[in-house]
Amino acid sequence: MLKVAVLLSIGRHPASGRPRRAPLDARALELALRLPGAEIHAVHAGDPAEPVLRDYLGMGLDRLTVLEIPAGSDPVPALVAHLKALSPDLILAGRCAEGGEDSGMLPYLVAQGLGAALLPDVADLSAGEGTATLTQALPRGRRRQAEARFPLVVSVHPAAPEPRQSAFARARRGLVEAVAASAPQDGFIGECEIRPWRPRPKRLRLAAGGSALERLKAATETKSGQGQVLVRPTADEAARAIYEYLVEQRVIGTS
């Protein structure tokens, strides 16, 4: 029987900052649930008491293994050790978490630890005897078909099918199984300052004349590499730069 491990993390809603099932990991689980006859092992490294983990159970899992590691520690060694013992054919994970270091490195590090191949950005897959046929999502909507032999680590792209709804009753009935695990403290993440993301301000560009299409382009297009970069300017310097920019763009007059 096809043995599939799905690595699940805890996401963070961009508006409320509250924990939720991570959208890409949920997609990874969705892909696993769609594989006919697969034996699914869902794994999370973190706190087994986190209530949001039940959202994954609500998608139709009977149990979820949690490798109990303290917050702020590196989950990779614990995951690699657990997966070595489990030796699944296929390991699925979202290509990037939501709310941690968000480096997107975890699938690669796990693949390296296991000595398994990795195929990134998968939007769809089907499994055969010892191999899987996968569809990779490339930029601009292009797709690439690939075949790969097990064992295989797959990172899941946002273009993968929407995860199914989590049902309250199934979430309540599912089992969270805590397994003790050791994890080294992650020095890097401990030193990071974490603050809410905000959109980068766009350069204002006043466009007059030209065709409607040109004006629309001018209003919506962002070009990089223009303008002047001020690193840690003083308040005066920053204010002067903004003032000059507004004058240049004719937002305010010079008088």
């Binding site: 939720r20 139709g60 049902a167």
Partner: peptide
């Protein structure tokens, strides 16, 4: 909805936003 998780179309996504953000649009 509660046992099968079979709320159709946009409704399932709206329910998830409601749970995490307390409003159906997922806004702050």
């Amino acid at each position: 909805t509660l046992e099968l998780g079979a709320t159709p179309a946009k409704a399932a996504a709206v329910l998830e936003e409601l749970r995490v953000t307390d409003n159906p649009g997922g806004k702050p």
